[in-house]
Structures are given as structure tokens and as C-alpha cells.
Amino acid sequence: MKILLIGEYSRLHNSLKEGLVKLGHEVTIVGTGDGFKNYDIDYSIYPSFILKWWLFTKIKNGLSKTIGYNAEMTEKGIRFYKLLPKLKGYDHVQLINSDAVQTHPWLEIKLYKKLLQQSKQMSLLICGDETPIVDYNLTGNLKYSVLSAYLENSRLKGLFQYSLKYTKKNYRRLFEWVKDRSNVLITSDLDYEIPMQRMGYTTHFIPNPINTDLVKYNQPEIRDKIVIFLGINRLSYIKKGIRFFEEALKIIEHRYSDRVEIIITENVPYKEYIKLYDGAHILLDQVYGYDQGYNALEAMAKGKVVFTGAEQEFTAHYRLKERVAINALPNTESIVQELSFLIENPKEIEAISKRARSFIKKEHNYIKIAEKYLNTWFE
């Protein structure tokens, strides 16, 4: 069958493609590459014309400040429109988000209409911000979420514009339009499954696919210092609670200066990012999660001890008796305690590393996950 995957924010669609191809299907990914992350895609809608030339970038910024017009969104829409003749005859189309093309919502609906006229069916994957997810997180009914910092301090509103856009009338209309025309809604982890269920939606929960054929296990060897890695993405800095990690690392560096090496990087492309943490024993991912996102899962597959979402809901869902990751809380002292325990008990790093790899192979195998997608799309 021919499968079209639109959007790529984390390598989720690439891993799904690899699983589907293994099963004998033809798969195409359309997207921007997601900025500096530069994920692999087959057809690009990256707004290179606007962003390549200094003058056009300056004009774009001026229009955005004066009248709120986003020229990048327009170029993405135009590029997708020009691709439509090549995007015919697909048995299934999956959007990684209702705003998968990242153009103006009114234009996006028109583009999806044309796309559906030349393809058989469509599904919506919910693996990040989306209207019902943001709506539920704004209620404050969860003990914490990626919007916790905003709920605690509304003056941070400007830093949450990407998430809050989904509450606007035009994005609500876009989500409803896509939802009504999707044969299934799929969630990728519990951070989205829990809100969707509580908002009354019928969803299919399919864990993120991880290609363990490509992501090799690296048995941790602690011969000298324990290496701790923190990769910072400034766009998601507050949403992921990175400040708690930074505060904890200052304490750890002072307390264990002769026993740890700390590596911090910022805004690096995906392929460089995964190489940079290869030699690390511990990876700090995020604090406002219940389950693991793609980056955390891939690091776990490599055998890293990952500080991320691993709440009771997660351990209960997978019926885990031992830790496969560290549940990182939005509390500096808690993170310090967890790091201190691992530094003083390095054998636990080796044990968690092995369990993490086994967990990924069992629950996130990219071929088995691809089969689940197929069964869900065409049930």
C-alpha cells in the first residue's frame, strides 16, 4: 500500500516509515525538517525562499510585527500546493498534527480538501500540542503539564504562543475539520492519551516506534567519571522545565566535581545531537511529563539512564516492577537526590540501562508498532 505521512517533529514518522517499508509498503514523508533539527523528509515544504535571503527575512519580520502577517506560513502553503500533483493515489494519509502543513488554517483546510480528493482516507496523530490537549492542560486538573509554568505565571504568555494558538477560533475550526474527516485519532503516549480520554474523545493509543536496528545499545562503562548530558532546545526550554535540570547540575557539579562530567549543548541538529550524547551515562530530558517522548525513548534504546516522564500512570500501564527511566519531577532537590543516588551507586546505572533497552525492544519495536498502525488505519 501507499502511505503518506505529513509532518515530522521528532523522527516519529521516520521510524514509522522504516517499519512500514520493512512490511513491504511504499511510504512518503512531507514536512519542513522542523527547523534546526533537520529531520529527513522526502518532499520539503521548508520556507527556504523567505528564510534564505536576508532582505526577505527582514521584510517578513517587519510584516509580522506591524500587521501580524506570517510570510513563512504562506510559503509553506504554496509549496504544499505545488506538491499536490505528486501526492496522488495514497491508500492512507496521516497528519502528525491538525496543523501539519503549518500554514494559515483557512488555507490548510483547502489544501487538505484537495489532498483527500486524491487519496482514500486520513488519520490524525496526536503527539504534541493540539486543541483538546491544550484545553485540558489549561484546566490545571493534572498535577503538572507542559503548561504548568504558564498557569503559575500568566506573564509568560508570550513564551507559550505556539501552544496557546490552538485555543484560537481558526485553529479550533481546523482541528474540528480534521477530526471530523479522520477515520481514527491516534495518541503516541500517555501525556496525550490521558487528556484526550478525559476530554471525551475516542482514541487509539499506539506507543512511539523506535528502530532498534539503527539505534544500537551502548553498554555503559564507568571507568572514571559519570557523564551527564543536557541538550537544550530554547524553543521548549520552559515547557520542558529545563531550569530545574540546570539548577540541579550546579549543585551536582559542586558536590561531585571529581566524579562527574557535565555536557550541555543548545539547539543542535538531530544527527549531531544523538552523536553528542553517545558517551553519556545519564541524559536529562524533561520534567513535565507522564510518559516518554521520542528523544527520551531513543536515548533509552541506547542504554542511557534518562530523566524524563515516568509517572505512576506510565508504570501501571506497562506493568513495570523496576525502573526503566527516572521520573524527573519539577523540583530541583528531587532531581539532585536522584542524580546523587546514581553517582554513588553506579551499578544502578548499569542495571537501569539494561532494563531500558529491554523495555524499548518489547514495547516500542518499530515493526510491531507499524503493524499496529496498519491494523488501526484499516480496521
Rank of each mutant, 00 (worst) to 15 (best):
K302E: 14
H317I: 01
F314G: 05
G309L: 01
K302N: 09
E313M: 05
Y273R: 07
D291K: 10
E266Y: 07
A316Q: 14
M300F: 04
I282M: 04
I264F: 01
G303H: 01
A296Q: 02
L283Y: 15
Y273S: 03
K302D: 03
Y288H: 15
H281Q: 13
A296N: 06
A310V: 02
M300W: 01
V268Y: 04
K302F: 00
L284S: 08
T315F: 09
D285F: 03
L276I: 02
N267E: 10
A310H: 15
A301Y: 00
V305S: 12
T308N: 08
T308F: 04
F314R: 11
Q312A: 11
Y277P: 05
A310W: 13
Y273T: 02
P269R: 14
D278V: 01
D291C: 10
Y290V: 10
D278N: 14
Y288G: 07
L297P: 03
N267V: 05
D285V: 02
F314S: 05
V306F: 00
T315W: 11
Q286N: 14
Y277A: 04
K275H: 09
D291I: 07
N295F: 08
H281N: 15
K302C: 10
I274A: 01
E272N: 08
A299H: 00
D278H: 11
V268P: 05
V305D: 12
E298V: 13
F307Q: 06
Y273C: 02
Q312V: 06
T308C: 10
N295K: 06
D291Y: 07
E313I: 01
T308Y: 02
I282Q: 04
T315C: 05
H317V: 03
G279E: 12
D291T: 05
H281E: 12
Y273A: 09
I274Q: 05
Q292G: 08
N267Q: 08
T308K: 06
E311W: 13
F314I: 03
Y290H: 13
D291G: 11
Y270G: 02
A316L: 09
F307I: 05
V268I: 15
Y318W: 15
A280D: 09
G289D: 10
Q292T: 11
Y290N: 13
A299Q: 03
F314K: 14
G279C: 03
K304G: 06
E313F: 04
E266H: 12
A280E: 08
Q312R: 14
K302M: 14
E298H: 02
T265V: 12
E311I: 00
Y294W: 06
F307V: 06
A299S: 11
G293C: 06
A316E: 15
A299E: 00
I274L: 07
K275T: 07
K275Y: 00
D285Y: 03
L297K: 15
L284D: 11
L283E: 13
G303Q: 03
H317G: 03
Y318V: 10
A280M: 09
E311D: 15
I274W: 06
L297T: 10
V305P: 14
K271A: 09
Y318L: 12
A296R: 08
L283R: 07
D291V: 04
Y318M: 14
Q286F: 02
T265G: 05
G289E: 11
L276V: 01
V287S: 10
